[in-house]
Nucleic acid binder design. Sequence first.
RNA 1: GGCGCAUUCGUCUAGCGGCCUAGGACACCUCCCUCUCAAGGAGGAGACCACCGGUUCGAAUCCGGUAUGCGCUACCA
Length: 486
Amino acid sequence: MRVRYAPSPTGSPHVGNIRTALFNWLFARHHGGRFILRIEDTDAARKIEGAEEEIMESLRWLGLDWDEGPVVGGDFGPYRQSERLSIYQDMARRLAEEDKAYYCYCSTERLAEMRAQQAKEKRPPGYDRRCRELPPSQRPAGIPPLVRYKMPVEGKTTFHDLIRGDVTFDNAVLDDFVILKSDGYPTYHLANVVDDYLMEITHVMRADEWIPSTPRHLLLYEACGWRPPLFVHLPIILGPDRAKLSKRHGATSLAAYRDQGYLPEAMLNFLALLGWSLDDKTEVLTKEDIVRHFSLERVGKTAAIFSLEKLDWMNGLYIRHLGAEDLRDRLMPFLDKGLPPEAPRPLSPGYVLAIASLVQERLKKLSDVVELTDFFFVDDLSYDVSLLLGKSLKRDLASQALELSIQRLKPMAVFDAHSLEETLRPLAADLGLKTGAFFGLLRAAVTGRAVTPPLFESMALLGRERVMDRLEQALGRVKAILGLTG
RNA sequence: GGCGCAUUCGUCUAGCGGCCUAGGACACCUCCCUCUCAAGGAGGAGACCACCGGUUCGAAUCCGGUAUGCGCUACCA
């Protein structure tokens, strides 16, 4: 079995696009077939420099390796359509010679006018076939022609979709579509059919939106005298507004999710579940699990909305299951990029390792680490004094609590989490404070935040010097307020 | 407008004629645990299976129609 992922390099691939790649890859790996990457760069105008590299980078990030295609080569290359132009041109010429296609000289302006007229008269749009029977003698000179397929005017075309069953179209609703543009480039329809044939693709697995063009492709296979492959149309992925996922949905490119700190293994698991399921309960699956069980029979037919909530949960789950050093290594670049410049670099791997274990079960995304742990790296804690006083804490009590804490902390022989808790916990009672209120005060003083990793572990990691320093500073701030208001 | 595809909790889905007074997960709510936040544990609420007709002893499951959504309708893919 041979399947392909055939993106056009018009930008960084979005998750819907990549999901199609994933299903092709899963299908190939499950059946021991070949997964081919083919770049469909037939639209010179929309082609974006660097997009091809981004496509490959996205595939690599998810771990979808291709057996043939750019970089790796293969026996059916080249795998970039812009390098296969003569093949399409020869084919278009052949079809024209066999009277299965014809040259069209209509200008873009005329076509636009025609469409406007059709719309006005509420007639179905489509080429009016003016050039269809144009004798060679009447061909205008000096106008580079394009080539159109000579669509049968009657009859029906039916194809069998592996997950949708038979789909039938009336040939009459199909117009004479362009197969070769006037710039010598093929359209998707021609290039796709020619390449799928020449590359011996057995299953064309692509998004739902291609269903309406499948009869054109089928007719093209027929015109060329080729046996068509099997067709599989995958449900599309919609944005939260139920429209087809596209650029305007914000962070839809796979790379954007990577940059936010989603793990590739979580993304792969999540994407696989968008349209495929193993059974009525299993949801957490490794790549190997999915490959082992993947089957077209369990691919659904309804469009799915790409919603972040479940992805976030799954990402957190995968983060929690990471080994300590693995997590540290993945966190490092996010800290490096996200921490303010005053945080000393390079970051200490040992220090980050300890921090990582403190936040592991608190992360949904790797990028969350910055907000959660910046106080470990930066000494200038800028927080509002009200954070120290809280809602119910009297000011004099706050200052008293800080003073007492400093006093008790000073003589501690070992400054570890356990000893810290042993010396500080009784203090709450001594002060007549609830532990929540007391620890909240200390937390604010030491971290400048209301929400942090566990207090004693954090204090131990920060070290005696910094903790004492921050407590003193907090005390000073509370006292300043006391003095101000009497 | 034409053509096509789809239609089960807010979301992802299980279900392929009786196991369904519809199962799981995320999100949500409550409680427990607890130094905050998480994580974890225990509960809860949430779907008249889009609607209307058939077929059948019996339908979420089969058939037809309607509605709605989405897609296609380019010298884009």
